[in-house]
């Protein structure tokens, strides 16, 4: 994991950034496996501790690769956390939609949804 600023991190090719309004933006790039999932969880827990307020997630899946079962389990844990407000998965093409379908299938929470554009996702997050 590489720290660029106090709010911007890179886990391999994936960018994780804390933006205004307690929104964590994740641009997932390439395959997501156990190791990347562990790094994500670690970083998110760090955000929880520092902010100690509910967080929203905007996860861009347009360049994401396959999500392993362990990676999906990690996102389930994030979405089930009490400090997680909403998790929006975004993807414009069918591959992203399939990945999102698998990620969402592991969680029964209504806090996680898929959108084809960032605008729609942000609208749902802040509504």
């Amino acid at each position: 994991m590489r720290r660029v600023t106090s709010t911007e991190f890179w886990i391999g090719p994936t960018e994780v950034r804390l933006t205004q309004g307690n929104l964590i933006y994740v641009k997932a790039v390439g395959p997501q496996n156990y190791h990347t999932a562990t790094a994500h969880i670690g970083l998110i827990r760090q955000f929880y501790q520092e902010i100690n307020e509910p967080l929203n997630f905007l996860i861009d899946l347009n360049e994401a690769g396959k999500n392993s079962p362990e990676a999906r389990k990690a996102w389930k844990d994030v979405s089930d956390d009490d400090l997680t407000c909403k998790v929006a998965l975004v993807g414009i093409h069918p591959v992203a939609r399939v990945i999102a379908g698998f990620v969402m299938s592991v969680s029964v929470s209504s806090k996680i949804r898929f959108f084809s554009t960032q605008e729609k996702a942000l609208k749902w997050i802040y509504e």
């Binding site: 690769g65 396959k66 093409h93 069918p94 591959v95 939609r97 399939v98 990945i99």
Partner: peptide, 22 residues
């Protein structure tokens, strides 16, 4: 193999790969 086209066939392949993992 997933191509860079990100089309329906790629989505089928991705779904297939993830199902295999499951």
């Amino acid at each position: 193999e997933i191509s860079q086209r990100k089309d329906l066939l790629d989505s089928l392949a991705m779904g297939f790969n993830m199902m295999i993992d499951d």
